[in-house]
Design a protein around this nucleic acid. Structure first.
Lengths: 230, 230
DNA sequence: TGTTTCTGTGTACTTTTGACACAAATGCTA
DNA sequence: TAGCATTTGTGTCAAAAGTACACAGAAACA
């Protein structure tokens, strides 16, 4: 194998001596954001075996030979949360040499938005605990480089929120303006003006009134839903 | 290996039977943008061996066991263009099962901005041609999924241009406002108003006058440079 | 039924964006 | 070298978007 071949790289057919690959695992880690009790939360797990037993970890899984990234992320998400076909997006790749203590692991991170009350959490084998954490109350003891992955995913979520109304699965089918605003505030970590927020949201023309008000709340707030065909 | 282990994934220590990996190559493809003759260009190569001989390809290379993504991207960029330590950024990962005809290949794409006149191109082994193409004149016959990778990288560049003045290496050390504006127009694919563009750029306070004017151009345009410590 | 708490709304001000034209500087050429 | 052609460099005004701000009405709760 000469160096030129390595550089030009794409022509893998040319390699006869040894393959252009090395022992390494490809994994997917998912930052699953949820919205519980008016707080933005992140789903973390704690392992009952192996290293990092006293650390919290993002849910993640190993990619297999016959699946692509989306399939893998879907599989992991479904297996851990029971959620299928949720909106999630690739964030970035982590491939430092020393990020895993045992072997080379290359990880692609995603983020997903779910509504926790739709899915009960179950402890799996090798998972000792699984819990939602306030975004500003993430445990300090995180395994691997998951602290960085979480920061990156949260920033990615903030950036996306600027343009798009991508709260997707985070809210119930119908919701009040205050609920939507509180969600925005919690994701962005800032306080927003009620009247200006409503102005901004309404002129996106993505929501419609349901005609019903939410019971049990003073003031009788109107319930909204996403417009079907925007 | 039970399924639970696969799902929780991060605990690779637990696997004794077979590793959580499969035969696959990790490669890096770089969308190298340059600016020649007032046109935004993209660097492409044509192979002289292997498949896709009549197709153009992004420069790319195989990652090795002892290097991380940045090192690998630097290596590839240096080997192909002679450029070192250039600003480049991760764009995204491509991992479809069928994107390479021979084996499983997972590719991380980057983009880089260089100034072609600083670096002469050399044909390497297995590279039959190497050339700059206008961004709106990219050949149709591209190997693998490089058409998609190029579109994604170009979009990424556009998005970044909105906030930051990241023209980095694309212009010479000193340049006129018109040159900078033409570059912006070519990256974004739109016409901009001269006075509004200058207003926007100046209030970023990233440029300073050199005090010299560019010779050979009517009107005697002022030359600017980046402010050293912003 | 009174009190408390939350909702829902409009206006004035500031900032940002976008459209638009002409005199001065230099290159070019006859 | 004089005149012409081209390119630079600059300001104002209008529209749009963003920001600050207060109070009456609805429903819960006691």
């Amino acid at each position: 194998m000469n160096n030129k071949n390595k550089i030009t790289g794409n022509n893998l057919q040319d390699f006869q001596v040894k393959p252009d690959s090395f022992e390494c695992s490809i994994t997917v880690d998912i930052a699953v954001f949820g919205y519980v009790g008016n707080r933005l939360k992140l789903l973390l797990t704690k392992r009952s075996a192996g290293g990092f037993q006293d650390h919290w970890l993002l849910p993640g899984g190993v990619m297999e030979a016959d699946e692509n990234l989306k399939d893998c992320a879907n599989k992991v998400l479904y297996a851990l949360t029971g959620v299928r076909d949720i909106h999630f997006e690739q964030v970035r790749v982590y491939a430092s040499l020393d990020r895993h203590p045992v072997k080379r692991v290359i990880t692609v991170s995603f983020y997903a938005l779910v509504r926790p009350e739709n899915h009960s959490l179950a402890l799996r084998e090798n998972v000792e605990r699984i819990d939602w954490f306030d975004i500003d109350g993430i445990p300090e003891k995180l395994g691997f480089d998951h602290g960085q992955i979480i920061r990156d995913a949260h920033q990615f979520l903030k950036n996306n929120l600027k343009d798009k109304l991508i709260v997707g699965e985070l809210l119930p089918e119908t919701f009040t303006m205050t609920e939507l605003q509180t969600l925005y505030e919690d994701i962005l970590g800032v306080k927003l003006d009620k009247r200006n927020f409503r102005k901004r949201i309404f002129q996106m023309e993505l929501l419609e009134k349901t005609g019903r008000v939410k019971a049990g709340v003073k003031g009788g707030p109107m319930l909204y839903r996403y417009t079907k065909n925007p």
